[in-house]
């Protein structure tokens, strides 16, 4: 009785540690084995962010880091220009946020402004290598 209570509340068993470690290492293995997934994700990510700010596509970097209990994706997406907010009403602007002109010389420090998107991945439930369509060139439309 005391024994299992201790186990329930006490430190992790070695089998749950094993499960946790395996889950992480396999996610890392799968990503390493599927570079096209990363390329596609990068493209989609940049497409979404480009709707709001102008980013430097060439300098986008994506990394994966193992954290304590999760795999984290770190995306460094240099922003070249931010549109001046239009109107104070907070109404959502639907038009594509392509800046009309190249950014003025004043904002000539693009790659220093690199906010990191840090997304910890959820454990995938039924992931399997559904073959991704072969990666297309990362062109914006």
């Amino acid at each position: 009785m005391i024994e299992w209570l201790k186990r329930m509340l006490g430190p992790q068993t070695s089998s749950s540690t094993a499960k946790e470690r395996l889950r992480l290492v396999l996610m890392t293995d799968h990503l390493a084995l599927a570079p096209e997934i990363i390329e596609n994700m990068k493209r989609d990510l940049v497409d979404v962010i480009s709707r709001y700010v102008e980013v430097d596509r060439e300098k986008v970097e994506i990394d994966f880091e193992r954290e304590d209990r999760a795999l984290a994706m770190m995306a460094s997406i240099p922003i070249i220009a931010v549109n001046r907010p239009t109107g104070g009403g907070g109404s959502h602007d639907e038009k594509p946020a392509k800046p009309e002109a190249a950014p003025p010389a004043a904002s000539a420090t693009p790659s220093t402004a690199s906010p990191s998107v840090n997304a910890a991945t959820e454990p995938p439930k039924r992931r399997r290598r559904k073959k991704q369509p072969s990666s297309k060139p990362a062109t914006a439309h």
Binding site: R7, S15, R23
Partner: peptide, 18 residues
């Protein structure tokens, strides 16, 4: 060993490998 938490269970293995 599975019972004492010292070995992965069959369910764990199946889940990990799907």
């Amino acid at each position: 060993m599975v019972k004492s938490g010292d070995m992965l269970s069959v369910d764990d293995v199946c889940e990990i490998l799907s």
